[in-house]
Design a protein around this nucleic acid. Structure first.
Length: 915
RNA sequence: GGGCGCGUAGCUCAGUUGGUUAGAGCGCUACGUUGACAUCGUAGAGGUCACAGGUUCGAGUCCUGUCGCGCCCA
């Protein structure tokens, strides 16, 4: 059957079928009974639900590959390893998509009305919403698809209501009028996290507000006290200077503030200044928020359009004056001349008019962070608005403590501090959104003024009995439902078996960008509603970037489509490439202009595995294979060496996975598989596997090779599941040994430790260095691959040279050596001395170039002596000998002795060359 | 303004209790098709570990400063 395998791995011909077989075999599904009845140890990851409208991109590729590696590994360890998939309704994002569709039809959502619009979104979501989950299957994601959830599922709606009402009852949700971030395009409030600061080159304009005549004395005093911002206009009136990056807001100023301790301005507090262009006068107040050191130490106060100013007004009693409309035009409270102007037009107009009346004192270039809507990138406007908020401080306390006491760990660890800093400075969360798509706020208003916050839709007002109730028109921030994900997916608030079995989960794998949006809030909700954290490990991976370090994005056009990669190179190639770059705390960079080069490493490795497996299957053949224990007496050094290396690779792989060092896990196995199994063991075992030789040796080789391959495929399976499973399924199996049904549930290697054999490894390393040296000497003198040479080996460890005569086949195979002599060398040839002191000589009569050989040997001597002199200096240093650990000193001594021997032998050879 | 991270081979990056000759992949050079694999093999070139100090017997690794780049929060 093995002959059927083609020499080139064709992922398309194996991956889809293999995935289907896993699904049909039910390997992804974990019922609650596995934990509750069978007593298996659960391991749970809930997927960061992608937006329901999203198409798979490389960021998803990375995120889900990492999760799948962890899930597969734990599954093989025997855990009840559950990965819950699903999608997020993504309020603004999804609404925007459908609105764009409508716009293409010349329609606006108001043309449909709320009910029909929401129906339309549902249609869209039902039709296309599963796409991304289907795409995840192509990359091999072993999610429990029977548990797929959507954040607007009925169960999850119930959870959202329960949480809202419960928090309201605990006075942790309130409604009030505050300054919030407002997107004038989406026409909705945003949370602080959704308003992303963007460094912008802007201007800081200086405006003059004239003072009345009765303030002349105080103004002059301020001026005398060094307040450069106080001055006199040409007409003799005094003025104050205030600065702003948003001049249009001056139309809504209701005061000017100074610090109460700022003596320069003490006499001006209480005065009224003229607010230009408006005909209004506004008071000068004192407030501790003002930084006397910054700028003029004097600020304009616009309470309806700035968060700090709003707070100043709250303390000082300044009036609130909203001069804008919801779409950021100047509104009815602005002077008539500005009404209807867009905020940026208004800015120009205000500046022009101030200039015209001589009250613009110029501007400075000013770089500052301007908040933008994270969904549509429109400049966010701080706006006075009545919204719903969550009181975060009490919720943050246990979530903060869990990080501090190590209940929750972060990888990489520095995120712990970022998280704690955010928790310590947490602000209330604006959760109401003026959208139609999302979880409707469960609050009803009665014309009598009664407000009902209820788990069930109320039929009538409990106070006046009226049935004319109106539900709050707003929906909740998408993250309000996402934060419940770790328990809402298990049916909460019902007390389900799933919840008992799978909460709390274990690992959260996500990107740092949503640490606050999502991770922090899940932790808070976990404590509030389940009494414990939803997971204990937070693994934050990097960002996928292009070769120039730019984040991959649709708008930049620098993305790579994961499905295209799967199609062209296979899911295994994509997964290996990603995981092998997945060093803790670093980003992944992939060349979008040369996709083949970007994934070549993964593709080549998958092909290498394929061919090694193909060769092994062919060579081992179909006959029965004996258990390793039965052939133990016939194992060669090579067999025992590779088994020892398997043991090492197993424990190393486990150790790296435990520490989330996925790239070291992947790369370690890459080098083990390619550099040790393929380059050495397979080459060595080839001749033994041929028919007609020593039967006992052949059986030992067959058993060893099967065991080695079995272990290697198991270790590699989490990262390259398809090619490994395909080969493993064809692997012959030792007689009388139980065989797992599929590699996906084969036990993770943990028993190999008994194969460790340091002595054998050392012996083999000596052999390797001989082969490497022989190859090097051949190359040095251009001996072609087809040409055989003799080799003389003398000295070195006891029995080293003698043992080589029994390895003629191996040396022939690996170094093209056809004759081994343990006698001293004679004649012309190339020499070397191995690190173990063995002298190596290749007779190269007629080929050898004495001058060249002398030069080469001279360089070798210099290299060895260079190292030796460094070592000698160190060993001659009393401080080193007395301070360094004994074993370090001992090692250096041994090394020095070795180098001395090597060096003296090299010198001897050099002398023999007549140098 | 506050906090964090990075600067190692032509390119992308590893390198966690400080300890031999600093590694990988890609790229490059030479040779090679021997019955797994040319998506391959063998050998090779290529690095003052940004710079300057310091701690230490010993620093890519720890500390301080400088220069350059990036991110987060206000």
């Amino acid at each position: 059957m093995s002959q059927e395998l083609p020499p080139r791995l064709d992922p398309r011909s194996i991956e889809p079928a293999r995935y289907r077989a896993w699904q049909d075999g039910g390997y992804f599904h974990v019922p609650a009974t596995a934990v509750l009845e069978d007593g298996r140890d659960p391991y749970v990851i809930v997927i960061p639900p992608p937006n329901v409208t999203a198409a798979l991109h490389m960021g998803h590729g990375l995120n889900n590959t990492v999760q799948d590696v962890l899930i597969r590994w734990r599954r093989m360890q025997g855990r009840a390893s559950l990965w819950v998939p699903g999608t997020d309704h993504a309020g603004i994002a999804t609404q925007n998509v459908v609105e764009r569709q409508l716009a293409a039809e010349g329609l606006h959502r108001d043309d449909l009305g709320r009910e029909r619009f929401v129906e339309r979104v549902w249609e869209f979501v039902t039709e296309t919403g599963g796409t991304i989950l289907e795409q995840l299957k192509a990359i091999g994601a072993s999610c429990d698809w029977e548990r797929t959830r959507f954040t607007l599922d009925e169960d999850l709606q119930r959870a959202v209501r329960e949480v809202f009402v419960s928090l309201y009852e605990k006075d942790l949700i309130y409604r009030g009028e505050y300054i919030i971030n407002w997107c004038p395009r989406c026409l909705t409030a945003l949370s602080n996290e959704e308003a992303e600061g963007e460094e912008t080159q802007g201007s800081l304009w200086h405006l003059r507000y004239p003072l009345p005549l009765d303030a002349t004395e105080a103004a002059a005093a301020a001026r005398a006290a060094g307040a450069a911002s106080v001055g006199q206009l040409p007409d003799g009136r005094w003025y104050l200077t205030v600065s702003t990056t948003r001049p249009e807001t001056m139309l809504g100023d209701t005061g000017v503030a100074v610090h109460p301790g700022d003596e320069r301005y003490a006499g001006l507090v209480g005065a009224h200044v003229e607010l230009p262009l408006t005909g209004r006068t506004i008071p000068v107040v004192a407030d501790r928020h003002v930084d006397p050191e910054f700028g003029s130490g004097m600020v304009k106060v616009t309470p309806a359009h700035d968060k700090n100013d709003f707070e100043i007004a709250g303390r000082t009693g300044l009036a609130l004056l909203d001069v804008m409309t919801s779409d950021a035009r100047m509104g009815d409270n602005a002077p008539e001349a500005f009404r209807g102007l867009d905020r940026f037009e208004a800015r120009k107009a205000v500046l022009a008019q101030l200039e015209a009346v001589g009250l613009l004192a110029g501007s400075d270039a000013h770089t500052h962070a301007v908040p933008h809507c994270y969904r549509c990138n429109t400049v966010v406007e701080p706006r006075l608005s009545e919204q719903w908020f969550v009181r975060m401080k009490p919720l943050a306390e246990p979530a903060l403590a869990a990080s501090q006491d190590g209940t929750i760990t972060f990888t990489p660890p520095h995120w712990q501090r970022v998280y704690e800093h955010w928790m310590e400075n947490i602000q209330d969360w604006c959760i109401s959104r003026q959208l139609w798509w999302g979880h409707r706020i469960p609050v009803w208003y009665c014309p009598c003024g009664e407000v009902m916050v209820s788990r069930e839709d109320p039929a009538a007002c409990p106070k006046c009995g009226s049935g004319a109730l109106e539900q709050d028109p707003d929906v909740l921030d998408t993250w309000f439902s996402s934060q419940l994900w770790p328990f809402s997916v298990f049916g909460w608030p019902r007390e389900t078996d799933d919840l008992k079995a799978f909460y709390p989960g274990h690992t959260m794998v996500t990107a740092p960008e949503i640490l606050f949006f999502w991770v922090a809030r899940m932790i808070m909700m976990g404590f509030e509603f389940q009494g414990e954290a939803p997971f204990t490990q937070v693994y934050l991976h990097g960002t996928v970037r292009d070769i120039k370090g730019r984040k991959m994005s649709k708008s930049l056009g620098n993305g790579i489509d994961p499905l295209r990669v799967v199609e062209e190179f296979g899911a295994d190639a994509m997964r290996y490439t990603i995981v092998s770059q997945c060093a803790v705390g670093t980003d992944i960079s992939l060349d979008h202009e040369d996709v083949e080069a970007a994934f070549a490493n993964g593709r080549n490795f998958a092909n290498k595995i394929w061919n090694a497996g193909r060769f092994a299957l062919m060579s081992v053949g179909d006959g029965p294979v004996r258990p390793l224990a039965d052939v133990e007496a016939d194992l060669t050094v090579d067999d025992r060496w590779i088994l020892s290396r398997v043991a090492r690779a197993s424990s190393e792989a486990t150790r790296q996975l435990e520490r989330f060092r996925l790239h070291e896990y992947a790369e370690g196995l890459y080098h083990f598989f390619w550099g040790e199994i393929c380059d050495w063991y397979l080459e060595l075992v080839k001749s033994r596997l041929q028919q007609g030789g020593d039967a006992a040796s052949r059986e030992a080789a067959r058993s060893t090779l099967v065991a080695v391959l079995d272990h290697a495929l198991r270790l590699l399976h989490p990262v390259v599941p398809f090619v490994t499973a395909e080969l493993w399924a064809r692997l012959p199996w030792p007689e009388d040994e139980a065989r797992p049904a599929d590699l996906i549930v084969a036990p993770w290697p943990s028993e190999a430790a008994r194969w460790r054999d340091e002595a054998v490894e050392a012996r083999f390393a000596d052999f390797q260095s001989l082969v490497v040296e022989a190859r090097r000497l051949r190359k040095e003198y251009g001996i072609g691959e087809g040409q055989r040479v003799a080799i003389h080996v003398a000295g070195g460890p006891e029995g080293f040279a003698a043992a080589l005569t029994g390895r003629a086949g191996a040396l022939e195979q690996l170094a093209r050596v056809d004759r081994i002599e343990t006698t001293p060398a004679t004649g012309a040839g190339a020499s070397a001395v191995l690190a173990n002191g063995a002298e190596v000589f290749l007779p190269l009569e007629g080929v050898i170039d004495l001058a060249r050989e002398r030069k080469r040997m001279g360089e070798e001597v210099a290299r060895v002596e260079g190292q030796l002199s460094g070592l000698r200096t160190r060993l001659a240093n009393d401080k080193f000998v007395s301070n360094a650990p004994a074993e370090v000193v001992q090692k250096e001594r041994e090394r020095a002795a070795q180098l001395e021997e090597q060096s003296s032998k090299l010198r001897e050879k050099l002398r023999a060359l007549g140098a």
